[in-house]
Every structure is written in structure tokens, then in C-alpha cells.
Design a protein around this nucleic acid. Structure first.
Lengths: 211, 211
DNA sequence: ATATGTATCTCGCTC
DNA sequence: GAGCGAGGTACATAT
């Protein structure tokens, strides 16, 4: 199947793979993209009822009488759509493939923190590194002082929650075996419980946002 | 706007809200649902280029000459679609709103572990509780022995990674202040680094899957 | 409304 | 390909 299409039809759906699900007979909107993506949308919610990711193989087969079957296969994931009645099908010619250009990301926030480092963290720094590698994963930013103290910063672009503290603690645990460390969580805001936990761990919260 | 529709058109898109993004002029598929969901799909990937969640207010306005503007507003999130040329628009009548019925979820795995508890964990248990509350969030399962030892189990329905270990450690840290604890991570499989970290933390991996 | 975790997460990046 | 984390995550649930 070369071109994408959008199909509105009366159908029911069975999915089997990582999980198993059924969708009872009804009118659903089905979108197929040339890269193999398949989406089945109901009349509410922005996430599809069923879906298949890039790379799936689709076989659409119409029978005499208006019905048909669409089978999508991707590794061990299968979606079977029993089509009872086609309401419309439109093929999508010259469908564009551009990506959005986005800003206000976590990366931007990290860069802002590094650019204005001395405004947020005091010390005699020898280096400041983004995506600093540890044995338990990369840290957003690590600043190293002349006395080898590592200032470890986890950056969140949204309100920080308890899982952000946990993530920071993991990096600190990894590094503190070898070097002196200080921990920071940088975000526009932070939940009350996360802030309590952070204090308990002797880490510092840095307030930073997009102006 | 009462009914949903699917619109294929030449347009460009600007989003402003939590982040900011632009999508250059091209042919995109736009889906609008009666609950306010709005999706803008390009010809690849299963996720939309831009979207608006449930509850947004849409204003679609066509001009003489075939062009138009669609503006979607939701709290402080705005999508503006400049429509240069409509290729087709279809309104979706009697669009179904059923949910899928799903199985093979994490909840099912937890229930399987509880049902066959003695096959996985040895001890003289007084209680086994799902969604056991701690000060740092609920644990999937906690089994308590007569001697008050708490067996703390974090369940993952897929291959466990290092973040699952971190999550378990947080619960253990919370409970170990008050009671003796033992930690377990239960999943169908586990990554090598996660397994190493788990051993280091003196926790136990339980292999459990969907038959 | 806030907080927390799951997801058939998806996607991108690094090793 | 595996592993890890971001995401305008969305979504359900509990408080």
C-alpha cells in the first residue's frame, strides 16, 4: 500500500500483542500512513482507541457486498478490523512530511541555566557539562569545582514532582561513591511533597523558567 | 461546532502555549472531535504534528476564495491553522464513543502474583496488600509477615529498566525508617544494568509474565 | 484542583 | 538493536 488514506466505517476491532483488546462494533475513523502507522479513532479523546506504530504491514481486502477486512501486522502485534460498511474512504495525495519546529524545551532551559550559571550556583568552577555520563544514566548538567566537588543538576521544564527527586538521587548515589557531590533540582515550580523530599535529601531547588 | 470532521488541506500551523511551535505550509490531515480534541497529522509517525486536548474551543471560518482560518483555544494553549486550500472535508455522523476492553495489563500481573504468592515469595504472611500507601507514593504490593517484615514488590508489565529499581528504592527508603523491609522487582524480563543495580541494592528480581 | 503512576506509551538519541 | 529519558506527553485515579 503506497499512499495514505482515511476511512470512516462501521467496524469492530481486535488487537493482540503486548496486550489484548477488543473494540465493539461502531463507526470509527481509521487513518493509514504510508510509513505503516495505523490509527483508529473514536469520537472522543485525542489518543486513538487502537493504533499500530511505524513499520506495520497492512492488508486491506474488500469483499463483494461492501464489507472487508483490514489486517495490520508489526512484529508480534496484530490489529484486525472487520469492516461491515464503508461510509467513505479518501486517499491522501501529496501528504506533507514536515516536522514542527519547537521551542521552550528542557534543552533550552538547561542552556539558560548554563549561560547564567553564576546567578544560580556559587563556586569556583572548572567545567560545566551537559548530559554528563554516570553509571546510572546521564545527568542533565554537572559543574565541577577546582576542589573536585560535583554540582549535579537535574532540569525539568515543568513543575517538578517526586520522580524528579528520585532521578536526581540515583545520579547522586552513583557519583557520591567517588567524588564529593551537591544535588540540585531546577524547574519553574515544584510540588509540595517533592520539595519536602528534596529538603530531606539535602538537595537544593533552583527556580528557573522561560522568562 | 457539534459534529466531528476530518479535513485535508494545504495549510500552515502555529502553536503557542506550554511550548511554541510552527509547522511549515503543506498538506496535512486535520481531525476535529466533538469533545474539542484537535489533531494535525503529517504523512509519517503515529503521533500528531500538533494537537489540542479535550475541552478546546474551535472556531472555523472560511473566506471567499477557498481559504480560511481555524483557531483552537484551550486554557492558555492556542493553535492557529491558516488554511490556504481545502482538498476535502468530511463530517462524521454517528461517530461511536466506545472504549476498548483491554487485558494483559500491569494490574493483571499484580493479581497473578498475589494469587500465586507462595510460589514467588517465602514467609509467614499476615497480609498482602495492593496499592500499599507510603509517604512517597503507593507501592504495587506489600506482603507483611508475622514478625512485621515488609516484603515490598514493584511490578512492571514489560522489561524492567533502571527507573523501576529507583522507584522501588524510594519506597524501600520510606518504609525502612519504620519497619524491616525486603525489596522485589517483578517483571517478565529485566535489563542488564537494571539487574546489576538491583543486586547492588540487595533487592530480588521475580520473573513473572503472562503465561 | 493537585499529585502520582501507567502506557500496546511514542520518539529520539546514544552506545 | 538495547537502553535510557523527554514529552506541549495523555489519561486514570486518588486525595
Amino acid at each position: 500500500m503506497h499512499k495514505g488514506f482515511v476511512l470512516y466505517c462501521l467496524c469492530d476491532v481486535i488487537y493482540d500483542g503486548r496486550a489484548y483488546s477488543t473494540l465493539e462494533r461502531g463507526n470509527y475513523l481509521i487513518i493509514y500512513k504510508p510509513d505503516g502507522s495505523l490509527l483508529i479513532h473514536g469520537s472522543s479523546k485525542s489518543t486513538p482507541r487502537n493504533y499500530q506504530s511505524v513499520g506495520s504491514k497492512v492488508d486491506l481486502h474488500f469483499k463483494n457486498g461492501g464489507g472487508g477486512v483490514l489486517v495490520s501486522n508489526n512484529n508480534n502485534e496484530t490489529i484486525t478490523i472487520n469492516i461491515h460498511h464503508v461510509i467513505f474512504i479518501e486517499h491522501l495525495h501529496k501528504w506533507s512530511d514536515n516536522d514542527i519546529i519547537i521551542s521552550k524545551t528542557e534543552k533550552e532551559l538547561s542552556e539558560k541555566l548554563i549561560t547564567n550559571w553564576s546567578k544560580y550556583i556559587k563556586g569556583d568552577f572548572v567545567s560545566i557539562t551537559r548530559e554528563f555520563k554516570t553509571s546510572l544514566g546521564p545527568v542533565d548538567i554537572v559543574g565541577i569545582e577546582a576542589n573536585n566537588t560535583h554540582h549535579v543538576v537535574e532540569v525539568k521544564r515543568r513543575k517538578a514532582s517526586i520522580s524528579g527527586c528520585t532521578q536526581l538521587k540515583r545520579y547522586i548515589d552513583s557519583l557520591s561513591e567517588h567524588v564529593p557531590v551537591l544535588g540540585y533540582l531546577a524547574s519553574p515550580s515544584i510540588s509540595a511533597t517533592a520539595f519536602e523530599y528534596l529538603k530531606k535529601l539535602n538537595f537544593t531547588w533552583i527556580e528557573i523558567g522561560f522568562d
